[in-house]
Amino acid sequence: MHTGSISTKELSYICDSLKNEETIVKLCVHGAVECQNPQLKQFFNHMSHERFQDFGQLMNVLDHHSQYS
Protein backbone atom coordinates (compact mmCIF):
# COMPACT_ATOMS: atom_id res chain seq x y z
CA MET A 1 0.00 0.00 0.00
CA HIS A 2 1.45 3.33 -1.05
CA THR A 3 0.77 5.97 1.60
CA GLY A 4 2.72 8.89 0.14
CA SER A 5 6.18 9.92 -0.79
CA ILE A 6 9.18 9.64 1.46
CA SER A 7 10.38 12.97 2.81
CA THR A 8 13.92 14.18 2.30
CA LYS A 9 14.61 13.63 5.99
CA GLU A 10 13.28 10.06 5.84
CA LEU A 11 15.30 9.34 2.71
CA SER A 12 18.41 10.70 4.42
CA TYR A 13 17.73 8.45 7.43
CA ILE A 14 17.32 5.39 5.17
CA CYS A 15 20.59 6.18 3.37
CA ASP A 16 22.42 6.60 6.69
CA SER A 17 20.93 3.31 7.88
CA LEU A 18 22.12 1.57 4.72
CA LYS A 19 25.65 2.79 5.32
CA ASN A 20 25.48 1.62 8.94
CA GLU A 21 24.13 -1.80 8.00
CA GLU A 22 26.84 -2.19 5.36
CA THR A 23 29.52 -1.38 7.94
CA ILE A 24 28.06 -3.83 10.47
CA VAL A 25 27.90 -6.60 7.85
CA LYS A 26 31.54 -6.02 6.91
CA LEU A 27 32.63 -6.07 10.55
CA CYS A 28 30.68 -9.25 11.27
CA VAL A 29 32.10 -11.01 8.20
CA HIS A 30 35.60 -9.93 9.21
CA GLY A 31 34.95 -11.19 12.74
CA ALA A 32 33.74 -14.55 11.44
CA VAL A 33 36.80 -14.94 9.21
CA GLU A 34 39.31 -13.95 11.88
CA CYS A 35 37.72 -15.60 14.91
CA GLN A 36 39.19 -18.86 16.19
CA ASN A 37 36.39 -19.60 18.66
CA PRO A 38 33.69 -21.67 16.89
CA GLN A 39 30.86 -20.16 18.96
CA LEU A 40 31.94 -16.61 18.19
CA LYS A 41 32.47 -17.51 14.52
CA GLN A 42 28.90 -18.85 14.41
CA PHE A 43 27.61 -15.71 16.16
CA PHE A 44 29.35 -13.40 13.68
CA ASN A 45 28.07 -15.44 10.73
CA HIS A 46 24.54 -15.29 12.11
CA MET A 47 24.76 -11.55 12.74
CA SER A 48 26.16 -10.85 9.26
CA HIS A 49 23.21 -12.71 7.69
CA GLU A 50 20.67 -10.85 9.83
CA ARG A 51 22.21 -7.47 9.09
CA PHE A 52 22.40 -8.28 5.37
CA GLN A 53 18.67 -9.02 5.44
CA ASP A 54 18.07 -5.64 7.09
CA PHE A 55 20.17 -4.05 4.35
CA GLY A 56 18.00 -5.78 1.74
CA GLN A 57 14.81 -4.55 3.38
CA LEU A 58 16.07 -0.97 3.31
CA MET A 59 17.00 -1.36 -0.34
CA ASN A 60 13.48 -2.66 -1.04
CA VAL A 61 12.02 0.45 0.56
CA LEU A 62 14.16 2.65 -1.67
CA ASP A 63 13.31 0.57 -4.73
CA HIS A 64 9.61 0.70 -3.92
CA HIS A 65 9.85 4.47 -3.41
CA SER A 66 11.67 4.99 -6.71
CA GLN A 67 8.81 3.23 -8.54
CA TYR A 68 6.41 5.90 -7.30
CA SER A 69 8.67 8.92 -7.76
Results as ranks from 00 to 15, higher is better:
Leu11Pro: 03
Phe55Gly: 03
Thr8His: 05
Asn60Phe: 05
Asp54Ile: 00
Gln36Asp: 13
Met1Ser: 13
Val29Ala: 09
Ser17Leu: 12
His64Ile: 10
Gly31His: 00
Val33Met: 12
Ile14Cys: 09
Phe55Gln: 07
Val61His: 04
Phe44Val: 02
Phe44Leu: 08
Ala32Asp: 03
His49Phe: 06
Pro38Gln: 08
Leu27Phe: 09
Cys28Asp: 07
Gln39Pro: 02
Gln67Ile: 09
Thr3Ala: 10
Cys35Met: 14
Met1Gly: 10
Tyr13Met: 15
Gly4His: 13
Met47Lys: 12
Thr3Met: 15
Ile14Gln: 08
His30Ser: 12
Ser5Leu: 14
Lys19Met: 13
Asn37Gln: 11
Leu40Phe: 09
Ile24Ala: 11
Met47Asp: 10
Leu11Gly: 10
Leu27His: 07
Asn45Pro: 01
Glu10Val: 06
Val61Gly: 06
Pro38Asn: 05
Lys19Trp: 08
Ser48Cys: 00
Tyr68Pro: 01
Cys28His: 05
Gln67Phe: 10
Leu18Cys: 08
Glu10Trp: 01
Ser69Arg: 09
Ser66Pro: 00
Gln53Met: 00
His49Gly: 05
Ala32Ile: 04
Leu40Gln: 13
Val25Tyr: 01
Glu34Tyr: 08
Ser66Ala: 05
Met1Phe: 10
Ser17Lys: 04
Cys35Ala: 15
Leu27Met: 11
Phe55Val: 00
Gly4Pro: 05
Glu10Cys: 06
Glu10Ile: 02
Gln36Tyr: 07
Leu40Lys: 14
Ala32Asn: 03
Phe52Arg: 12
Ile6Tyr: 12
Met59Ser: 14
Leu58Glu: 00
His2Met: 06
Leu18Thr: 08
Ile24Leu: 08
Lys26Val: 02
Ala32Phe: 04
Asn20Ser: 12
Lys9Thr: 10
Asp16Ile: 01
Phe43Val: 13
Glu21Leu: 04
Arg51Trp: 00
Ile24Asn: 03
Met59Glu: 13
Phe52Val: 00
Leu27Ser: 11
Ser5Ala: 15
Asp16Cys: 02
His46Glu: 08
Tyr68Thr: 14
Ser5Met: 15
Lys19Asn: 13
Gln57Leu: 10
Lys19Gln: 14
Ile6Trp: 07
Asn20Met: 12
Leu18Tyr: 05
Pro38Ser: 06
Leu40Pro: 02
Ser17Pro: 00
Val33Ala: 12
Lys41Glu: 08
Ile14Asn: 05
Met59Gln: 13
Met59Trp: 06
Asn20Pro: 01
Asp54Arg: 01
His64Trp: 11
Phe43Lys: 13
Cys35Thr: 15
Val25Pro: 05
Glu21Val: 03
Asn20Glu: 14
Gly56Leu: 07
Ser48Val: 00
Gly56Glu: 07
His2Tyr: 14
Pro38Glu: 09
Gly31Gln: 01
Val29Pro: 04
Ile14Asp: 07
Ser5Thr: 13
Ile14Ala: 09
Val61Glu: 05
Val29Leu: 15
Glu10Gly: 05
Leu62Trp: 02
Ser66Lys: 01
His65Cys: 15
Asn20Tyr: 06
Val25Leu: 03
Ser17Trp: 03
Lys9Gly: 02
Asp63Met: 11
Met1Arg: 12
Val29Glu: 12
Gly31Phe: 00
Asp16Arg: 03
His49Pro: 00
Cys35Gly: 12
Asp54Gln: 06
Gln39Ala: 09
Tyr13Phe: 15
Ser66Gly: 01
Gln36Glu: 11
Thr23Met: 10
His65Pro: 11
Phe44Gly: 02
His49Asp: 06
Thr23Phe: 06
Met1Trp: 11
Thr3Gly: 07
Arg51Thr: 15
